[in-house]
Amino acid sequence: MGKSIVITSGKGGVGKTTTTANLGMALAQRGARVALVDADIGLRNLDVLLGLENRIVYDLVDVVEGFCRLRQALIRDKRCENLFLLPAAQTRDKTAVSPDQMRALVAELKESFDVVLIDSPAGIEQGFQNAVAGADEAVVVTTPEVSAVRDADRIIGLLEAQEFHAPRLVINRIRPAMVSRGDMMDINDILEILAIDLVGVVPEDEHIVVSTNRGEPAVLQNSSLAGRAYRNIAARLMGEDVPFLDLQSANGGLLGRLRRIFGG
């Protein structure tokens, strides 16, 4: 029996889907059997980030409506044999699925996977309600911007209202140079405001753009700083104690600056 984790943010464009794809790949590379669920019905993207868009035959709505079996809709990743994707439907909308149906679907996935990662759509409407319905845990993604942190706060409130005990935070796209100049909120600023546990910090990284273009998650590249950050987050999600300072000091010049930030 595996566990299910929803990746959510409130605000769009902060890197939820990138985070889901990279964490999924990183967890699978560690040997876990991983299913990624794209809950963004009508605006699917996870398939493109994973480079699997040309393999989709059936989707989540087909499974829910009984047109196919769950096994038929799961797409095996082409690089990692224990990573699977359940794609969203593109030509339908969020009302095609109910929270109860999602709950049943995720429960079924948990029977054969160690980890089920659910990529939530932006917003707090039905798509979000669907995405969190079957989740045991929640990871909230934000960037160091006023609007993103504000929306993260709203989402954390909603998650707590739905009895997610300890949603955890990923701060994405932090730019060390700007932080040290005092032009970007640092990790402590954000944590002080949101008051939840940090599970990882991902630096802004051009590799992400390239990897999105290619449909290959950045964790597949050893040279990618963001990829390393995601591997560390994956380890923490599996209960390993990876110190944040380790993440920083392993990376040379840029990290010197980051360390100063963390050192506060």
Binding site: G51, E53, N54, R55, I56, V57, K78
Partner: peptide
């Protein structure tokens, strides 16, 4: 195309 289907056959764009 990302994918072409003809009757029961499916062809997909090369990776």
């Amino acid at each position: 195309p990302v994918q072409i289907r003809i009757g029961p056959c499916i062809g997909r764009r090369p990776d």
